[in-house]
């Protein structure tokens, strides 16, 4: 339970930090921020990699989780980068 308390502490602080960091975003960047944040949520890949794999079902689940998280990561970062490259000031 103590570990959960510590991790919960990290969770609350990170949410608070996120709210503080992003509170003033110009509307031009709304879409890139969303898409960039979306790519970050692909961090689930790290979790998917350490799943247990005893038995066929578990291996399949781990494979699928890794697969979909990877689409999220690679697709997300590339789309964001493509989008940001378009924003130019003359």
């Amino acid at each position: 339970m103590e570990t959960y308390m510590l991790l919960g502490f990290v969770l609350i602080l990170s949410v608070y930090l996120g709210l503080e960091l992003i509170s003033k975003v110009p509307s031009t960047l709304h879409t890139p921020l969303m898409s960039g944040a979306n790519a970050i949520s692909g961090i689930a890949l790290v979790g998917a990699l350490v799943l247990s794999q005893d038995g066929e079902l578990q291996t399949t689940l781990a494979f699928l989780a890794v697969f979909f998280a990877s689409i999220n990561v690679f697709g997300g970062y590339l789309v964001t980068n493509r989008m940001l490259k378009m924003f130019k000031k003359k």
Binding site: L7, L11, Y16, L17, V25, G47
Partner: peptide, 19 residues
Amino acid sequence: FNNVLIVAGSLVGASGLIL
């Protein structure tokens, strides 16, 4: 029990919430 998942996930959660 993975810190980086918690930090990155929370940041995304917060930014989505703000939007």
